[in-house]
Nucleic acid binder design. Structure first.
Length: 595
RNA sequence: GGUCCGAUAGCUCAACUGGAUAGAGCAUCAGCCUUCUAAGCUGACGGUUCGGGGUUCGAGUCCCUGUCGGAUCACCA
């Protein structure tokens, strides 16, 4: 039973009966903590129908609800706000329904399919903090959609082609001395990234030398030998020169090996990978077809453009004058290919930083112009940059926070803090290690996901390793506490099912309040999908844990001698633990049995 | 310069899409472990929601305007 729904219909009936007119929308909100009640009807909009003052209107509705709607036991009116107190029986029924539903928090299959893209790295350097926000967001939104009843296809596009990878290749060829991940004992992505940095160093030095010899900055940027080597490699790659392609394959292979280790530790995965090297030609074909159909136009130099001035944007290049693809071309091809591969998907979500908002605006417009209906169902999940206290992250200046290093630091810090707290007495070595991983990564993921994705956020390392307050470990700890209770109950032979929740008639305030928070879980799951916002789930998980801790602190469960009440409390605890676990899973965070 | 975001407690973030006296955490201070895990709980302190107008029963939220910060407007990706 859904309390909100019942209340809405009840208020609707009340309004019709009292004022003789149908009511389109009802404003129902949680009651402020300072007043008695759980639900509040905002009565100002009703005054137009009632032709009475807000307070009198509220009282009329309140009286009607107490008399006619079985679930409202009393009410109070503050200004135009009608605060409703539901009978405890209603709350017991709510818990009964939750206990009876093993999938509470997960909505039934809706038959719809959706594709979500995230990660999408370049293959010339390792993943960093920005990628972590991206991956955690994309993975979490996927889980949130699954919990809303969708079939989800998780994908990424790997930018494995282009000048950036040729830069690492050029530097390795010049200075690499045959180094491999095996010979250096380095992760492949880090090794390739090292040569990307080498390239930049050499490039800068060569440019400086040319400039002192009198070259302009632009000339120097093109004439630097190492850049010429990289450009040459790109040309050779496009001509499928065997040596170049082989080196490209080898170095990309190193990167993929490194990435898969990073993804494994991050706990993210994909249903299908797309490679730019496979899709850019399709994109070019589609663009050429568009030229034939008159959707795009060709300039005298042979370059192909789309005119978006009618949509308030500019003209945009789609093929260079030499016929090669640009970023946009590749994305057009990828999008089309994906809808061919997965014909049932209704739309696509692109998890990409907000610096690319313009790009996606243009992409979706172009796909629409090409006649693809699904273009309307494409959504750019645009998220803000992650800032450091020292300022913006810049790979060139070495101020990036490396993903692998950060995860390892979080692990070590979780270990250190756990030891200081003396939490490990009864734990095996393996269990302890799993716990550090859970807590370290949980802290990191929660920290990155608790903020509204749209907003730029600050990553303070000191704050991210906090285990107290509004953090992942706080929620994990609450779960472990509840599990401890459940174990004790099971040890006493107490198993609780929905049918056992009869004999309770009066609730403690702390019980009612915890139950109230528990009861809105599915609303939050829906809201999170609608907003593409894991932060809604993170905030909810925190609220739920916080509310449980209040209950835990106030009411000693096992002091209760009335078996009915005892069972009620255990059922409530159990349900909250399960909901915490499910909510945290939607964030990609595991919860421990003890900590 | 055009367009698009953002600005809320000392710091990091909320605020159910226009509702009540704007809430959490961190930090600071004061309490609570012989009772289910103190990674917890309870209190105190902390606000001209960037400034100025407007809309209405009601504005952090909507409109106008100014200030500050950021992104973007490439034959880069």
């Amino acid at each position: 039973m859904n309390v909100d729904q019942s209340l809405r219909t009840a208020v609707k009936q009340a309004a019709e009966a009292l004022f003789g007119q149908p009511l389109s929308a009802i404003q129902l909100q949680p009651t402020n903590a300072e007043f008695e009640g759980s639900h509040t009807v905002v009565c100002f909009p009703l005054t137009k129908l009632s032709r009475k003052g807000p307070e009198e209107t509220a009282r009329l509705v309140g009286d009607y609800l107490v008399q006619h709607a079985g679930i409202v036991s009393r009410y109070n009116v503050v200004k135009g706000f009608l605060n409703l107190v539901l009978s405890d029986q209603v709350w017991v029924d709510v818990l009964r329904a939750i206990v009876a539903n093993p999938n509470y928090g997960q909505l039934p299959d809706n038959g719809q399919e959706i594709m979500i893209e995230y990660s999408s790295p370049n293959t010339n350097k390792p993943l960093h903090l920005g990628h972590l926000r991206n991956n955690f967001l994309g993975w979490s939104v996927s889980e949130i959609y699954k919990n809303n009843g969708y079939t989800v296809r998780k994908v990424q596009i790997i930018n494995d082609r282009g000048i950036h990878i040729c830069k690492s290749m050029a530097a390795w060829k010049l200075y690499g001395d045959g180094e491999t991940p095996q010979s250096t004992n380095m992760k492949g992505d880090h090794l390739v990234g090292k040569y990307y940095v080498e390239f930049d160093k050499a490039y800068k030095a060569q440019m400086a030398a040319l400039i002192t010899k009198g070259a302009s900055e632009e000339e120097a940027s093109k004439q630097a030998p190492i850049m010429q080597l990289a450009s040459d490699m790109l040309r050779k790659w496009e001509q499928k020169d065997p040596d170049t392609v082989s080196l490209w394959q080898t170095m990309n292979g190193w990167v993929y090996e490194g990435f898969s280790a990073t993804y494994a530790r991050m706990g993210v995965d994909f249903d299908k990978l797309y490679y730019e090297s496979d899709t850019y030609l399709l994109g070019r074909d589609e663009v050429l077809k568009g030229v034939e159909k008159g959707i795009f136009f060709k300039k005298d130099d042979g370059s192909v453009w789309v005119d978006l001035t009618a949509d308030g944007l500019d003209q945009k290049v789609l093929l260079r004058s030499d016929g090669t693809s640009v970023y946009m071309t590749q994305d057009i091809g990828t999008a089309i290919l994906r809808f061919r591969d997965f014909p049932k998907i209704m739309g696509q979500v692109y998890t990409v930083g907000n610096e690319q908002e313009y790009h996606f605006k243009v992409l979706f417009l172009i796909l629409g112009k090409l006649g693809y209906e699904w273009a309307k169902q494409c959504f750019h999940l645009s998220y803000g940059m992650v800032d450091l206290p020292t300022g913006k992250m810049k790979s060139r200046e070495g101020t990036v926070v490396d993903a692998d290093e950060l995860m390892q630091e979080m692990y070590e810090d979780a270990e250190k803090q756990s030891r200081e707290l003396g939490k490990l007495d009864e734990m095996s070595h393996d269990e302890a290690k799993r716990l550090f991983e859970m807590v370290g990564l949980g802290a990191l993921k929660f920290f990155l996901l608790k903020v509204d994705p749209k907003k730029r956020m600050m990553f303070d390392p000191q704050e991210s390793i906090q285990l107290q307050g509004f953090t992942g470990p706080f929620v994990q700890y609450t779960h472990a506490r509840i599990r401890s209770i459940i174990r004790k109950a099971e040890g006493m032979g107490l198993q609780v099912s929905a049918g056992d929740l009869n004999g309770v008639t009066a609730l403690e305030p702390a019980e009612r309040e915890a139950l109230q928070v528990l009861s809105v879980f599915e609303n939050k799951v829906q809201e999170a999908a609608r907003e593409y916002a894991p932060s809604i789930i993170a905030n909810y998980a925190y609220d739920l844990a916080k509310e449980y801790n209040k209950f835990y602190q106030n009411i000693p469960i096992f002091n209760e001698t009335d078996t009915n009440k005892l069972k009620f409390r255990i059922a409530l605890s159990q349900s909250i633990a399960k909901s915490i676990k499910r909510a945290m899973h939607m964030l990609g965070i595991e919860v421990p049995e003890r900590m």
